[in-house]
């Protein structure tokens, strides 16, 4: 059985409970054991802006904590995945840099030797479980559900992070994971567009305009929902729709699912207690009605 240290990051446990709930439930069904580690802290993703060294230290600290327990890391947030994986690769490749980092980690009684792999949850599902196994495990038919995938930038970039796994300019893994549930991945023009989450605290106007661009593009597509795999992307597309409607006079009401929620539905999870669907900002009644209907058929 595969075991991972669960790296929650900051955004998921603070704001996106349903992502944490559904991820825990889904991984359990598929035989992935998650170990909660109290000593994890922020991955340092934003701190690199102020001081690159601090960012790297924070990432290294988390890597060291997992390494001490002999566990690879599974993240829910794409940015955490990116920041930790980038640090892990750099520190592995550069012993001098590792030495420098360790001289500081020493003060908190930690050391990073360079033996950790960091994977985003979708990568674990894709690589460790595999699309075929997921297909076999599906209990509820979601066929016909039209889902627009959104990957999240740091799931794919920089290119060497996703090398051999997915392709930043023509990504496929989330499409395949969606197909595995029976739902239909719908391609759309702005699918690779960034959610702007990082810019949100700097300029709401800029970020919400950016989010609105994608929502407007989706408006022209026949879709039932958007499916994504990052808490920040969720906040931008899920929670911000009402603000956008108010600010720009739009009428968006696009249901947004986190991938484990979609997968959880296919695996027969309880929509509320297992998957937290009731916590999503945009009501999922339409989707639930469809599933109920196809169950009866």
């Amino acid at each position: 059985m595969n075991r991972y240290a669960l790296f929650l990051g900051c955004t998921t446990p603070r704001y996106v409970f349903q992502y944490e709930l559904s991820s825990r439930w889904v991984l359990k069904q598929l035989g992935i054991e998650l170990i909660d580690i109290d000593d994890f802290a922020c991955c340092g993703f934003n701190q690199i802006d102020l001081n690159k060294e601090t960012g790297l230290l924070l990432a290294a600290m988390n890597l060291a904590v997992a390494e001490a327990r002999g566990l690879n890391i599974l993240t829910l947030c794409t940015s955490c995945a990116g920041a930790l994986a980038e640090a892990a690769k750099k520190l592995k490749a550069d012993p001098k840099k590792r030495e420098g980092v360790n001289s500081k980690l020493q003060t908190v009684a930690l050391e990073y030797r360079g033996n950790i792999e960091v994977k985003h949850i979708s990568r674990v599902l894709y690589e460790d479980i595999g699309v075929e196994k997921i297909e076999e495990a599906v209990k509820t038919d979601l066929s016909g559900l039209r889902a627009a995938p959104h990957y999240g930038c740091h799931y794919l970039k920089p290119e060497w992070i996703s090398a051999g796994f997915d392709e930043p300019d023509a990504p496929q893994t989330l499409h395949q994971l969606i197909s595995a549930t029976g739902a239909v991945p719908i391609s759309y023009e702005t699918s690779n567009l960034c959610c702007g989450g990082k810019t949100f605290p700097i300029s709401r106007d800029t970020t919400l305009s950016l989010v609105n661009r994608k929502l407007n593009n989706l408006k022209t597509k026949e879709i039932d929902c958007m499916v994504l795999q990052c808490p920040t992307c969720y906040l931008m597309y899920g929670e911000m729709q009402k603000q956008i409607n108010k600010r720009f006079g739009e009428e968006h009401e696009v249901p947004v699912l986190l991938y484990p929620q979609l997968l959880g539905l296919a695996l027969g999870g309880n929509p509320q207690t297992d998957l937290g669907l009731d916590l999503n900002a945009i009501p999922l009644d339409g989707i639930m009605a469809r599933i109920a209907k196809s169950d009866q058929d």
Partner: peptide, 29 residues
């Protein structure tokens, strides 16, 4: 809220982080 959803409590300890931040001078900055 977390408790109500049966999510495990989080250990909120900034001690180590603070030490690292101080070591790299971000606290002054």
């Amino acid at each position: 809220r977390r408790k109500a959803l049966s999510l495990p409590p989080l250990q909120l300890d900034g001690e180590k982080v603070r030490e690292l931040i101080e070591l790299s001078g971000l606290d002054e900055l």
